[in-house]
């Protein structure tokens, strides 16, 4: 009933029609999707500074609160500055830096740059460090805001692409994020300690260590460890910059 040539023609035409339809839809929707991604990124950065932005007002609030964007080399030198809606130094707006690509270059031992956002909220300066790491099923990411002393956490925001709902996915809830406020990333001697995400941290850590630790998500051990590693490895790239600022 159906000849071989019919089968081949049918398959070929079907594939071409589907490919054309999907490609045109993807192109048509691309601007709207890119805009959503930009807005999401801005909302995440603002969330670390404890500013709740909606998709509608994110761009406006971002322009209002984030007064400066910097791109840093690992030796702590500032290679690009974006301030007052214009690029004052360098050739890339730090907001446009693809952190994933830069961290990949880092693992291969190549030169890389990392972004830093400076926000001014209620007269206080906050330094917001974007970060990227690995969870259980996929990437986890976040932003950590430090106060002017480059030590005390003022706010944090975490997110994930596909962690388990009810378990690892809980890292994006305020109950988890709010634990970070007031924690410190350096000890009294100025050594970098990062912030550890540990199961039952409030019970197992001594009071002087608790300032560098928060409670993990029960049932989300691997995601929690991922967040812990992410904070440590990403902040480590900024240490040279922080040391320069403190002098």
């Amino acid at each position: 009933m159906y000849s071989n040539s019919y089968v081949f023609r049918y398959a070929a035409i079907m594939v071409i029609v589907v490919a054309a339809a999907l490609a045109s839809v993807a192109m048509l929707l691309k601007p709207a999707q890119d805009r959503n991604v930009t807005i999401e990124k801005m909302r995440n950065i603002l969330a670390a500074a404890n500013i709740e932005a909606t998709p509608e007002n994110a761009i406006e609030l971002f322009d209002k609160y984030v007064i400066e964007e910097e791109a840093l080399a690992p030796d702590g030198n500032v290679v690009a500055v974006f301030r007052g809606q214009k690029l004052e130094k360098g050739n890339i707006r730090p907001f446009e830096i693809n952190l994933k690509e830069e961290l990949y270059k880092h693992t291969k031992g190549q030169d890389f740059i990392i972004p830093l956002y400076i926000a001014e909220v209620n007269g206080k300066r906050l330094y917001i460090f974007p970060m990227l790491g690995r969870g259980l099923w996929g990437p986890v990411y976040g932003n950590l805001a430090l106060e002017e002393d480059f030590n005390t956490v003022a706010g944090s925001m975490f997110g994930h692409d596909k962690e388990t709902p009810g378990l690892g996915a809980e890292i994006e809830l305020p109950q988890f994020e709010s634990q970070f406020i007031g924690k410190k990333i350096f000890d009294d001697n100025g050594n970098f300690t990062s912030i550890q995400v540990l199961k039952g941290a409030s019970e197992v850590l001594s009071p002087e260590k608790l300032i560098h630790g928060v409670d993990a998500i029960s049932g989300g051990t691997i995601t929690s460890n991922g967040v812990s590693d992410m904070i440590k490895s990403n902040l480590a790239n900024y240490i040279e910059y922080i040391k320069k600022q403190k002098i």
Binding site: L29, A32, Q33, N36, E40, D161, K162
Partner: peptide, 16 residues
């Protein structure tokens, strides 16, 4: 694709 373009929040919720 439509979720990503028009209801990004829901699309993030659903992910995989």
């Amino acid at each position: 694709q439509l979720l990503k373009a028009y209801v990004y929040d829901v699309s993030r919720q659903l992910s995989v």
